[in-house]
Amino acid sequence: MSPKAVWILAEQREGKVADVSYELITRGRELADQRGTELCAVILGDNLSDAELQTLIDRGCDRVLHASAPELRHFLPEPYDKCLQALIVKEQPEILIAAATSTGRTVMPCVAGPLRAGLTADCTGLQIEADTGNLLQTRPAAGGNIMATIKTPERRPQMATVRPHSTRPAPSISGRTGRIDRWQPPADLLKSRVRRVDYTPAVETQAIQDADVVVAVGRGFKKGDNVELARKLANVLDGAVGASREAVDRGWLPYPAQVGLSGKTVSPKLYIAVGVSGTVQHLAGMQTSETIIAINSDSEAPIFNYAEIGLCGDLFTLLPMLTAKIAAAKQS
């Protein structure tokens, strides 16, 4: 008998499958193939279209399990927890992975608790242990300076949240087929003591954790008005503006822009740290970025140890120059 299925918790916003779900497929497909079993995407929402659900199959799922109800349109903790828990109890998947997003990081522990399942947070590596078939979950700890590999030998499902952007989204393959199951949860699972009363979109146009390019603002900017220089650079690169703790504490940028131990962890393709000295706490939030460029007037700043190229000079000269030259390069 083949082992039980590998599940991913796909996410949707406003009825559209969120991109992070496709990254989970990359992870899940690999695990399912190694275990010789089925990959199933669970997605909670309000009556998503077949076309939308099919994208999960196109990108590598064998099955989509859609829990559908108006109460599941937005992420509300109680209905999400209860529905996911009921599905797990019913179908007993071997592995369940979710994204380490606000949804994943909230729902997964709430589900793992009552199920007495092991749960590992914010993994950057997932593998199957050869002889036992256990899931090996690797995650950074202590600000990214230590990696720990964790397993759950006895309890099932083995649960983990996965750091967004830690792998590529699975590509779409035309002609893939799979099964779409829709499930209408019973009313008692949909009760909620929490009501959504208002929603305000983020101030900055692009969230830093989703951006391919992040331009980070540090103390070197001297005052809030100067952040405009970083915005201009981010704009020509279609990127987002991040910030060190210092820059957020001084009110130059809002908290959602903060990168580091007490802010967000990002790993974009390109991270340009400007006037950021590179404290241990900041490095923890960005050192896994693919390409790091640092601009700092202090040639001894620790950030240079993590950068591919470091410019030792005045950011007020360098930033406008870089912005102009990139704009020109894109034109030609």
């Binding site: 300076n145 590999t149 397993k151």
Partner: peptide
């Protein structure tokens, strides 16, 4: 505890 730490290692991000 359901989870077990199997190993701990130190990655290097220095460039």
């Amino acid at each position: 505890s359901p989870t077990r730490v199997v190993k701990i290692f130190r990655p290097s991000h220095l460039k």
